[in-house]
Design a protein around this nucleic acid. Structure first.
Ligand SMILES: [Mn+2]
Ligand SMILES: [Mn+2]
Ligand SMILES: [Zn+2]
Ligand SMILES: [Zn+2]
Lengths: 131, 131
DNA sequence: GATGCAATTGCAACCCGTTTGCATCTAATT
DNA sequence: AATTAGATGCAAACGGGTTGCAATTGCATC
């Protein structure tokens, strides 16, 4: 713990700042590998464990979702959260702008005495081109 | 391919039959490890790769979902599909009986020209005991 | 019931996304 | 400039899942 009034002991490093920037610029949740490659463009010496450790360090502002391919995706919490239609044939991903659950969470929460903090929703099927 | 009229070349083995029975008796989606241990009670020589290979062989009647803990859960498709409220503190799992998406899938499908085959929904938060 | 053969299994090695120990570096405070 | 706790790079380890291979078994055919 620090002796002063700082809320956190987190330091501002070039790796961490670039990671946040990459996530801000992202149009969809990114894998650790994707973040790693984008950060590496600017900071060639970065390693992937730095990405993972920052996902943990920044977990208060990041939402993590493990897809069915076994890889986690990371996105900034403040970014408008979207869900995806994922094509099982061509793996194309179509973002859904409006979260279909928003309207339902209140009821769900009350009926089950459960404080809902986050949720994970992906929809799988065949896209227009693959039917 | 077989020469006769069989729809599939799948054999009925004691391992496979027991795996299906375990899934039928399950009250919630099970991990490969959980299935393995339950099958092992009756067939001590079974190995976990047999479980995984059967999850693949039986994929037409099984739905697989990878949770945020990185482990996949397996359930029979024909079983009433449920979703879970998962407590982030005590990992308790509360099943939701009615799928909140059913009502929305039709619209979603039409608006995006996407044939929806399955979906994955988990909700994370704090349960009554952990708030 | 014996034969033939492809599907299945057990076993061990492997894969790959993620985590961790440790020495070094660096941001931030004094 | 000195101090020091947090952050990084690197390499090794972890763990859920996969795979090559030889032996076994279900099942169709005789
Ligand atoms: Mn949502
Ligand atoms: Mn559903
Ligand atoms: Zn497609
Ligand atoms: Zn709880």
């Amino acid at each position: 713990m620090s002796k002063n009034q700082n809320v956190s002991d987190y330091k501002s490093t070039k790796q961490r700042n670039k990671i946040i920037q990459v996530l801000q610029d992202a149009k969809r949740p990114l894998t650790a590998e994707e973040i790693y490659l984008l950060v590496k463009d600017e900071l060639p010496s970065v390693v992937i464990s730095t990405i993972y450790r920052n996902m943990e360090a920044l977990k208060n502002i990041i939402v993590k979702t493990v897809y069915n391919d076994g890889k986690a995706r990371y996105a900034l919490t403040k970014e408008k959260h979207t869900h995806n239609l994922i094509c099982l044939k061509c793996t194309k991903i179509i973002a859904i702008e409006k979260c279909p659950l928003e309207a339902l969470e209140k009821n769900l929460s009350e009926q089950n005495s459960f404080e809902i903090l986050e949720h994970k929703l992906e929809i799988y099927g065949h896209c227009k081109d693959c039917r």
